[in-house]
Design a binder for these strands. Structure first.
Ligand SMILES: [Zn+2]
Ligand SMILES: [Zn+2]
Length: 823
DNA sequence: AGGATATACCGC
DNA sequence: CGGTATATCCTG
C-alpha cells in the first residue's frame, strides 16, 4: 500500500495523508491533483506533495477519491519548492499558498445539495413543522438542485442547516455531494473535408455533387483553399472564418455535412492568441542606454540581482526589451513584473509589437477561465515567452526561467495585504529566479530604501541611468505654504491661488493638467456644525466618507453604506455638513473654477469595470479632457505628452501617516506625479500644497533629489532601527470583544517578550482600531539583520501553536496572524 | 475554511 | 420548548 501526502487549499498547518487506491498507484505523480474527502462531507482538490509506503500512525486514513491529473502534474517541480519557501518565510501554510497560486478553475470542490425524498409520506409521530413544510415545497418547486444557501435565500429562513438535519431524520429530504467543475474551456467550431489530403478523386466527386447548389459550391471552394488540402500544407479552418470568407452560413455547411462531404467538429482553443502584427524591431538605444545595458550584463557576472535606477523618462523599458530579447534568444523564459495599475495596453502592445505571441499577459481582472488557459499554456510548454503581469504572476508554472524583471520595485502593491500568504512578489520573484538559476533586474526611478542600501553595499549590482531621453526636462516644483495662503485669503476650495494660476496657464496654452488628491469620494467627514457629532461606521472605527454621486455615506474599510442624515441624530439640529475634499468634490470645484475646461476623474470608483481604467487613460492622452483629477492611480501607467502642470493638493495627507515608511512613500509618490508634468521639450510646473512647508522631505521633492532623500532617510532608519537595519514582523490580534482583544494582546506580548526581550514593541491600537466588528491590536517585532530569521520564524510558529492549542483558552477565540516584512 | 456539535439565549 | 445565534472543536 502507498500513502500520499496531500496539500489542501486550506489555512491548516501541515499536509494530510491519504491511502492511494491500488488502481491509482501507477498513474499517481507528485504535483498531480487529486480529489480527497475531508471532514465529514466535503471533497477538496489537493495536490500530491510526496508519496511513501510507510503507514502513518495515530489516526484513521481516508483514501484518495479520484486522480484528476493522471498523465502529467498540474504544477511544475520548482513550484512546490517555491510554495514551501513562501509558506515558511511569510509564516503562512502551504495550503494558503496553493489557494493563492492555483486558479479556482483548477480546484474542483464538492457542493452539498438538498433533494426531496420521492414519495415521502409524513409520519404522524413525527410531523413536519411549518417551516419544514415550506422548505419541502420550495424544494419540490425548484427548477434546479438547491444548496442550503439557496434555500436560505429563497425562503428567507435562517439556521436552515439544523432544519435540514431534522428533515433528514424524518426522511423527508436527502443530501448529496456533487463535484462542481468551474472551468469552461473555450471551444470553437471547425470544419474539414471528410476525406483525406490529396484525395483528388474524392474532391472531384464532391464538386460534382454540389454543382447545382451555387452557395455550397462556393463554400467548398473556399474550404479547399483555406484548408490547404491540395497544397500539401493543411491547416484547420474555423467555421466562422469560412463563413466570412465565402459569405455563407452554417446551414450551408450542415448541408455539405449531410452529403458526407465535410465534417464539422468542435475543438478546445486557448483564449489568448495574438493576432496583431509583429511590426517593431528592437528599439534603438541611446549611448547612455547602451552603456547601462552593458553594465547590467557585466554586473550579472558576479551578482544575481541588479538594481537599475533610471530617472523618469530615461527609457528603462527599452532596456528591458533588449534584455528580454537576449533571454528569449537563449530559448529561456522571462517574468516581467509590473504593478497592477502600470499594466496598460500601451505597455503590453508595445511588447507584443516586438515579441508577438511570445507575450503572455496576466492580471487580476482576468476571469478565472482566462487564468486557467494561461496556466495551461505555461504548464504544457517550456517554449520561450515573456510573462508580463502583476503580483500573482510570480506564482505561474514557469519552465526554464532566464530573467526576472521587477519594474517599479519600490511599489507597495507587490505586497499582498489581506488573505495570507502575505508575500512580497518582488522578493518572491528573486527567490524564484535563484531556483531557476536566473538573473533579476529591479527597476525604479525611486528605489526603495532597502533596495538602494543593498545596491550600494554590494549585495546587489547597481546601474544608474541618469540621462533623460530625448528633450525631456525636469519640471519646476513650488511648495505652497497653505497656512500663509489661507491667511492671505488666497485659498478657494481646495486650490491655492498659485495652484489655480498654474492650472490656468497650462490649459490656456493648450496643455493639460493633473490634480492629485489621495482621497476618493466627495468629502472624508460629515459633521454637525452645531454639536460636532460625526457619523461613524457601525462596524469600524472610522468616519464615513460622503459620496455625492450615489448620495451616500460610505465606509472605506468594510464597504457599508448609510444615508446622509438631514438632521443631526445627536442634537436634532438640521446642521450636518460635509468637510474636506475627495476626488469627487475636487472635480466639481475644479470644473467650476476653470469654466469651460473639461475634467476626468480617475479613482477606485471610476475604474471598477474591466476597461474603464484604460478608457480614462485613452481619453486623457487623446486630449478629450483638459484636467485629470485622481488618486495614486494617476501616478502610473501613463505617458501623457500634453501634461504641463501637476498639482498635489495635500502633501500632508501623504506625509502624516504614522508608519516608518511614510516619508519614503510620500517622496516616491510626489516624485512620480511630478514626473507626469512637462515632457517633450517644455518644462512643466508642479505645485505642492502643504500646511507644513518646512517638512524635511519636501525640499528633496522640489529638487528631484533622490540621492539626497535617500541619505536623509537611511539615517532615520539607522537611528530608529528600522529596515534595512532590522527586519520587522507585525503580529495582529483581532477579536470581536474590546476587552478580550486587550488581554489577549497583552498575554501574547508577554510571551513574545520572554522569547525576544526588548525586540518586542507594543501592543498598540492601530490607526483604525476596529474593522468589520473586529477590534485590532498590533505588536511589532524588530529583529537585527544578523540574527537567524529561520530561528525567529520557528519560534513564532511554535509560539502560535502553543498559545492556540490550549483547550478552552480565550486565545483560541482570537484571530492571530503574522505579517513578515510589512509594507 | 467549513461543518458538526455543544451551548447560550429568546420569546411565549 | 422549538427555534436561533454563537462558541468551540476537528479535519488524515
Ligand atoms: Zn448635532
Ligand atoms: Zn465599516
Amino acid at each position: 500500500m502507498t500513502y500520499a501526502q496531500v496539500i489542501l487549499p486550506l489555512p491548516l498547518q501541515g499536509g494530510f495523508t491519504y491511502e492511494v487506491p491500488p488502481e491509482a498507484e501507477r498513474q499517481l505523480r507528485i504535483g498531480a491533483r487529486v480529489i480527497v474527502p475531508f471532514g465529514r462531507r466535503k471533497f477538496y482538490t489537493g495536490i500530491v506533495d510526496s508519496v511513501s509506503d510507510r503507514k502513518p500512525e495515530g489516526y484513521e486514513l481516508k483514501a484518495i477519491a479520484a486522480v484528476l491529473d493522471s498523465g502529467s502534474p498540474i504544477i511544475k517541480r520548482p513550484q512546490i519548492q517555491l510554495w514551501n519557501w513562501i509558506a515558511d518565510y511569510y509564516l503562512a501554510t502551504v495550503g494558503e499558498v496553493m489557494k493563492a497560486a492555483l486558479p479556482a478553475g483548477l480546484k474542483v470542490e464538492s457542493e452539498t445539495y438538498v433533494e426531496p425524498v420521492p414519495d415521502f409520506e409524513e409520519d404522524p409521530k413525527a410531523r413536519l413543522s411549518e417551516r419544514e413544510v415550506i422548505v419541502l415545497q420550495t424544494l419540490d418547486h425548484a427548477a434546479k438542485r438547491l444548496t442550503v444557501a439557496d434555500i436560505e435565500k429563497l425562503t428567507g429562513f435562517t439556521g436552515v442547516n439544523a432544519l435540514i438535519g431534522r428533515m433528514i431524520d424524518k426522511k423527508a429530504v436527502a443530501v448529496s455531494e456533487k463535484l462542481v467543475e468551474r472551468y469552461a474551456p473555450r471551444r470553437e467550431t471547425y470544419v474539414r473535408m471528410a476525406f483525406g489530403h490529396g484525395d483528388t478523386e474524392a474532391l472531384h466527386r464532391a464538386f460534382d455533387a454540389v454543382a447545382s447548389a451555387r452557395r455550397q459550391e462556393a463554400a467548398l471552394l473556399a474550404l479547399t483553399d483555406m484548408s490547404g488540402i491540395m497544397r500539401g500544407e493543411p491547416s484547420e479552418v474555423a467555421v466562422k472564418a469560412l463563413c466570412e470568407r465565402a459569405d455563407i452560413n452554417l446551414p450551408i455547411l450542415k448541408a455539405l455535412q449531410q452529403k458526407g462531404i465535410v465534417e464539422i467538429y468542435r475543438k478546445e482553443i486557448g483564449r489568448f492568441r495574438y493576432n496583431g502584427l509583429v511590426t517593431a524591431s528592437l528599439p534603438t538605444l541611446s549611448d547612455p542606454q547602451r552603456e547601462a545595458l552593458n553594465a547590467i550584463h557585466a554586473s550579472w557576472r558576479d551578482k544575481n540581482v541588479t538594481l537599475l535606477r533610471g530617472v523618469t523618462s530615461s527609457g528603462k523599458t527599452e532596456l528591458y526589451i533588449h534584455l528580454i530579447d537576449f533571454v528569449l534568444r537563449q530559448r529561456r523564459q522571462v517574468l516581467y513584473l509590473v504593478p497592477e495599475i502600470a499594466l496598460t495596453t500601451q505597455l503590453t502592445e508595445r511588447l507584443q509589437r516586438v515579441f508577438g505571441d511570445k507575450v503572455v499577459i496576466y492580471h487580476s481582472k482576468f476571469t478565472d477561465n482566462e487564468r486557467v488557459d494561461i496556466w495551461k499554456r505555461l504548464l504544457c510548454s517550456d517554449e520561450p515567452c515573456v510573462v508580463i503581469g502583476a503580483r500573482s504572476s510570480v506564482l505561474l508554472p514557469f519552465g526554464p526561467l532566464g530573467l526576472v524583471i521587477v519594474d517599479e520595485e519600490h511599489e507597495t502593491s507587490y505586497k499582498q495585504q489581506d488573505p495570507a500568504p502575505r508575500y512580497n512578489a518582488r522578493d518572491t520573484a528573486m527567490v524564484l529566479a535563484r531556483m531557476h538559476g536566473a538573473k533579476t533586474l529591479l527597476g525604479s526611478a525611486t528605489p526603495s530604501v532597502e533596495t538602494y542600501y543593498k545596491a550600494t553595499t554590494g549585495r546587489f549590482g547597481l546601474v544608474e541611468l541618469t540621462e533623460r531621453y530625448g528633450a525631456a526636462v525636469l519640471p519646476e516644483v513650488n511648495v505652497v505654504d497653505m497656512k500663509r495662503a489661507r491667511l492671505r485669503g488666497e485659498v478657494k476650495g481646495p486650490l491655492s491661488a498659485d495652484a489655480s494660476r498654474t492650472v490656468a496657464d497650462a490649459t490656456a496654452n493648450g496643455g493639460q493638467a493633473i490634480v492629485f488628491i489621495n482621497r476618493r469620494g466627495f468629502a472624508p467627514v460629515a459633521e454637525c456644525s452645531s454639536c460636532g457629532y460625526s457619523p461613524k461606521c457601525e462596524h469600524c472605527d472610522v468616519t464615513l466618507t460622503y459620496h455625492k454621486r450615489i448620495d451616500r455615506l460610505v465606509c472605506h474599510y468594510c464597504g457599508s453604506q448609510y444615508p446622509l442624515p438631514t438632521v443631526c441624530p445627536a442634537c436634532k439640529e438640521p446642521a450636518i455638513e460635509v468637510l474636506g475634499f475627495g476626488t469627487e468634490r475636487v472635480e466639481d470645484e475644479v470644473g467650476a473654477a476653470f469654466g469651460g475646461a473639461t475634467t476626468l476623474r480617475m479613482d477606485l470608483d471610476t475604474t471598477r469595470s474591466k476597461d474603464s481604467y484604460q478608457q480614462i487613460i485613452n481619453d486623457f492622452s487623446g486630449r478629450k479632457a483638459d484636467i485629470l483629477i485622481g488618486t495614486q492611480m494617476v501616478t502610473k501607467g501613463l505617458d501623457f505628452a500634453g501634461v504641463s502642470a501637476v498639482v498635489i493638493l495635500s502633501a500632508d495627507a501623504l506625509l502624516n501617516v504614522p508608519d516608518f515608511r511614510a516619508s519614503e512613500r510620500a517622496f516616491n509618490m510626489m516624485e512620480q506625479v511630478a514626473g507626469r508634468a512637462g515632457r517633450r521639450g517644455t518644462p512643466g510646473h508642479v505645485i505642492i500644497q502643504s500646511y507644513q512647508p518646512a517638512h524635511p522631505v519636501l525640499p528633496y521633492v522640489a529638487s528631484h533629489d533622490y540621492l539626497g532623500f535617500y541619505s536623509y532617510e537611511i539615517e532615520e532608519r539607522r537611528k530608529f532601527l528600522y529596515p534595512p537595519f532590522t527586519r520587522i514582523i507585525y503580529i495582529y490580534i483581532k477579536h470581536r470583544d474590546p476587552r478580550e482583544v486587550d488581554s489577549i494582546a497583552v498575554a501574547y506580548t508577554h510571551a513574545l517578550r520572554q522569547l525576544f526581550g526588548n525586540r518586542v514593541y507594543g501592543p498598540e491600537e492601530p490607526h483604525v482600531g476596529r474593522i468589520q466588528q473586529l477590534y485590532i491590536r498590533k505588536i511589532m517585532l524588530k529583529i537585527e539583520t544578523e540574527a537567524s530569521m529561520t530561528k525567529v520564524r520557528t519560534i513564532l510558529r511554535d509560539l502560535y501553536e502553543r498559545m492556540h492549542s490550549v483547550p478552552g483558552s480565550p486565545i483560541r477565540s482570537a484571530q492571530i496572524y503574522y505579517d513578515v516584512d510589512p509594507m
